[in-house]
Simulated scan of single mutants.
Amino acid sequence: MQTAHTVSQVREVVRGWHREGLSVGFVPTMGNLHSGHISLVREAMARCDKVVVSIFVNPTQFGPNEDFDRYPRTLDADAAQLVDAGAALLFAPSVEEIYPLGQNQTWVDVEGLGDYLCGANREGHFRGVTTVVSKLFNIVQPDVAVFGEKDFQQLAILRRMSEELLFPVKIVGAPTSREDDGLAKSSRNGFLDESERKLAPLIYANLQKLRSDIEQGARDFRNLEQRYTERLNTAGFQVDYLTIANASSLAPAAKNDTDLVVAVAAKLGKTRLIDNVSLAVVDNP
């Protein structure tokens, strides 16, 4: 595996692959890799000849009271995992390399989809995500980019961005990787203490129960949201949102919507966890 720290190094390597007629897959990450990230790399490898993985903790997607400074930086351990996984190129730039003029004056902002779920209470978060991913797409020039479905809203926004800005990149969503007890794998899980880690799987367990309620005919979505929010809060979480949404618009679902996503964000101690489940309502009463 090659390692590059500059834009020019990445472009030189990728140009060589393209001249050889090789397809290029891309997995953007913020590092502190776990097996969920590696599953994205393997998905990209199954689709492409060469795979680039970026590790960049992007400051513009963190709010003023969020965990940018304490976000784990584990580049050497991450690189070892990527070598084992078979990645061809690691791109690990500095902040100055990605934002060479300092504070950006040019932003990529997808309107509408970012107004709900995480976007409702994290002003500027998705603008930071879409801006940095558009920069990375311009740098890497991939044929395929793979993102995890755990970040459902992010995936939907990046798909819309890519379509509307005519990026020649196929966006692939990979299923959420989970621990044996159902907890969605996340770098932030490492912030949980022992008691919090035991509670954390209740998020997915309640999402499954809520999905089952809908599949069995429950259609008062606002009541379901309130009931399951109260369950999680009583269990020790601080729920930011628990929403039954239209899977396309991400707006709160109406009774006649058929493609749904149930999404949740909740704090456990100081750690913010997110998860979701999707379902298609076949027989809407």
Rank of each mutant, 00 (worst) to 15 (best):
A4I: 05
H5N: 15
Q9G: 12
V10T: 12
V10E: 12
R11P: 13
V14K: 10
R15F: 08
G21W: 15
M30W: 04
M30R: 00
G31I: 05
N32K: 00
G36P: 13
S39V: 01
R42M: 00
R47V: 05
C48D: 05
S54L: 03
F56T: 06
V57E: 04
N58M: 06
P59E: 02
P59W: 03
T60P: 13
G63Y: 03
G63E: 09
N65T: 02
D67H: 02
F68A: 07
Y71I: 06
P72D: 00
R73G: 00
T74C: 14
T74I: 07
L75C: 04
L75A: 01
D76P: 10
A80I: 05
Q81N: 09
Q81C: 04
L82A: 01
V83G: 04
D84F: 09
L89V: 03
F91C: 10
V95N: 09
I98Q: 12
Y99T: 07
P100W: 08
P100Q: 11
P100T: 10
L101Y: 13
Q105M: 10
V108E: 14
D109L: 01
V110T: 02
E111P: 14
G112P: 11
G112K: 03
L113A: 01
C118P: 08
F126A: 01
V132A: 00
V133P: 10
V133E: 05
K135E: 05
K135D: 09
L136M: 11
F137N: 13
I139C: 10
I139G: 10
V140N: 06
P142L: 03
D151T: 07
L155S: 01
L158M: 12
R160D: 14
S162P: 14
F167S: 00
F167H: 14
P168N: 06
K170W: 07
A174H: 13
A174Y: 01
P175N: 04
S177G: 09
E179M: 07
D181V: 12
G182N: 14
N189V: 06
L192F: 09
S195F: 12
R197E: 06
L199P: 11
A200I: 08
A200D: 12
P201V: 02
I203T: 13
Y204G: 12
L207W: 05
K209H: 13
D213H: 14
E215C: 11
Q216H: 15
A218M: 12
N223Q: 15
L224P: 10
L224R: 08
Q226K: 04
Q226M: 07
R227Y: 12
T229K: 15
R231W: 06
R231G: 01
G236C: 08
Q238E: 15
L242N: 08
T243P: 13
A247F: 06
S248P: 04
S248L: 15
S249L: 07
S249E: 07
S249Q: 07
L250I: 08
A251E: 15
K255S: 15
N256G: 13
T258P: 11
T258L: 12
D259G: 10
V261T: 12
V264T: 15
A265N: 09
A265S: 06
A265R: 04
A265E: 11
K267Q: 13
T271D: 08
T271Q: 03
D275P: 14
D275L: 05
N276L: 07
D283R: 13
N284E: 14
